[in-house]
Simulated scan of single mutants.
Amino acid sequence: MTDRLKALADAGVSIWLDDLSRERIESGNLADLVREKSVVGVTTNPTIFAAAIADGERYDEQVRTLVADGHGVDRVVFELTTQDVRNACDILAPVADSTGQDGRVSIEVEPTLANDTAGTIASAQALWAAVDKSNVLIKIPATKEGLPAITAAISQGISVNVTLIFSTQRYREVMDAYLSGLEAARDNGLDLGRIQSVASFFVSRVDTEIDKRLDAIGSAEATELKGKAAVANARLAYAAYEEVLASDRWKQLSDAGAHAQRPLWASTGVKNPDYPDTLYVADLVVADTVNTMPEKTLEAFADHGEVVGDQVTGKGPEAQAVFDRLTAVGVDLDDVFLALEAEGVDKFKTSWTELLETVEAQMEKASA
């Protein structure tokens, strides 16, 4: 276990790997990362699965069997991905047992349902039943249509990773959806202690979008703000989270055994080579949060990342000052977040198409 990653974990940050493949599972690599690199969770998405299936012979036998049984591409994708998640859940189960909150593995609902509440609920139910592991999290997007699906899933005892959160306003709506789900679950007589949730707040894409707009503005004041928006946005989100934790509504649920819906910093790989490659890890250190990293970012932090204490608590006013300056130079923040959500949903759907095409190619090979 590297000292730098251990320091991050000791600061209360749960390190989750943003990657999964059958190769990682069967070779022992995932277990090694848990043992040696402080990894205590895994997140997945269709792009990750597409890359794993395209490059991995370990899927071939299952594909051949499913094709021989007459299954179509949607069912083959469902079977391949849920098997990987199920097996990863087994590897992470000891972590879940020992921590009570980590050891989680996430799998997304079908992305084409991002604007379909009923379809999202049905997809979440199907994934939850198929994986059938208490430490799985079902990823539901934080679209307007996704919000009632979050409440419905939680009310049924389904643990949820809410994804594609870009703005503090939407994050507040996500937290409200979670609390509403917990209240319904309590009224349904469910054990709240068995329900887990994280809220995935996207980071790097905010700088990518706002930096582009700052470049277009071109003033010295605008240029000076580049690379500051994403961290400020996350810090404002954390301040909103603290408000919810201090509310009477949350305290009643907590007293009934509910777990807090931890903030998860997502999209933490740095896109701009001019910025430190550990920026969205080092600058967002705060206890009882999750940082899900691609392996490149994980290795970068293990090599040269620095933990210098809590970088988030109490920084809400400073973060708001950054946003005020962004508005003053002409950045339309409401438009930024609308654009990021629309782009996020589009990427979500495109990655699903990529996964279907990848699996179709493997099915054709299996039929040849």
Rank of each mutant, 00 (worst) to 15 (best):
A184I: 03
S27M: 12
T208I: 14
I138A: 03
L245V: 05
I217C: 09
I210G: 01
Q125T: 14
Q320I: 08
A54S: 14
S155R: 00
D60Y: 09
P148A: 09
R22L: 12
D97S: 12
S247K: 12
E243D: 13
A256S: 12
A51N: 14
L338P: 00
C89H: 07
V281H: 01
A220S: 15
A177E: 02
V203H: 06
A142T: 03
P148T: 10
V39Q: 04
V162E: 03
A287K: 14
L338M: 10
A321S: 14
A319P: 02
V42K: 05
L214E: 01
E61H: 11
P94K: 07
D3H: 08
K226L: 13
T143D: 02
A368F: 11
R186V: 06
E299M: 11
P148H: 06
I53L: 03
A266I: 03
V160K: 03
S27R: 15
L356H: 10
E299S: 12
D19V: 06
E360C: 00
K133F: 05
K315I: 05
G181L: 08
E209P: 03
K226I: 11
F202Q: 00
N29F: 11
G193C: 13
Q320E: 12
T278N: 04
V285A: 00
D324R: 13
Q311G: 03
E343S: 15
M363K: 09
